[in-house]
């Protein structure tokens, strides 16, 4: 049963598979993003309560969901790296970290920029914003730990251990922040707008943008992972043969 896991985990297979697949993914992603954003920004009637600033939600919500999804994926990769010692999983986890931190930071920035017109302050200690802030701290901690090691192998293993410790802790952190929030304030206001019954024409652009951002994540992830593979497999025969071939123009 392990054979297919190792074969699947071979960096060369990943590289070859994604060579053809990547351009299509990029085109679909850009199409979805452009359609979703133009639609959301220009063609959706303003919200009766908040006027036009609810359009920030089209990127804020996918970013928040994306950040947590990326961490979950990173945790799976870390587990595969630690348990079955699949090097490809670590290369993917390494690329996830940077993207995850960006999605997380964007979620915070858009959340606070959306908070100013709606509640008058840039930052409110709302349960979800605080959990997102802590998730950003964990992302940064993982990247800092990975780069603190001289030997790349140890750095990856250490980062995987911290990722797994993090994935155990993050639900508890979220629960404690939610409880802490109810101790000090009423229920979070941010949640109200996204759960309110949105009519379809408000909701459908979010579908496009959401899919577009997921596509964007995978597209950027594949490109970064391919670079990591080239760097990691530099000594192997297929990389050297690939690099000497003329048609690689970069």
């Amino acid at each position: 049963m392990w054979q297919w896991l190792y074969r699947l985990g071979s960096p060369k297979l990943f590289y070859d598979m994604t060579t053809g697949f990547l351009p299509w993914l990029t085109i679909v992603t850009y199409f979805l993003l452009i359609v979703g954003l133009v639609w959301g920004l220009g063609f959706v009637p303003p919200d009766y309560q908040m006027g036009d600033n609810f359009r920030i939600a089209y990127i804020h919500i996918p970013m928040s969901v994306g950040a947590m999804g990326i961490y979950a994926m990173m945790a799976c990769m870390a587990a595969m790296h630690m348990i079955w010692n699949i090097k490809l999983a670590d290369l993917v986890a390494r690329s996830c970290a940077a993207l995850g931190a960006t999605y997380c930071a964007l979620s915070l920035v858009t959340g606070s920029l959306w908070g100013k017109p709606t509640w008058g302050t840039y930052w409110i200690w709302d349960a979800r914003l605080t959990s997102m802030l802590i998730l950003l701290f964990v992302f940064i901690a993982i990247m800092a730990l990975r780069s603190a090691y001289d030997s790349e192998n140890s750095g990856s293993k250490a980062a995987s251990v911290l990722t797994l410790v993090g994935v155990v802790n993050l639900p508890i952190i979220h629960y404690s922040v939610v409880w802490w929030n109810t101790l000090h304030q009423g229920d979070s206001i941010l949640g109200v707008s996204s759960q309110s019954a949105n009519p379809p024409e408000v909701w459908s652009p979010a579908f496009f943008v959401g899919l577009g951002l997921i596509g964007f994540f995978f597209q950027a992830l594949i490109r970064r992972t391919r670079n990591e593979i080239l760097l990691h497999e530099r000594r192997s025969q297929w990389v050297q043969q690939l690099l000497t071939s003329k048609q690689l123009q970069e």
Partner: peptide
């Protein structure tokens, strides 16, 4: 995680403080 590194004092805090938030909160 950081015992093998040279100057790891601050890194220790960056790694551990987010994880100790539930204990602090409760």
């Amino acid at each position: 995680l950081t015992v093998g590194l040279k100057r790891s004092g601050v890194l220790l805090a960056v790694l551990v403080l987010p994880l100790s938030i539930p204990v602090l909160v409760f």
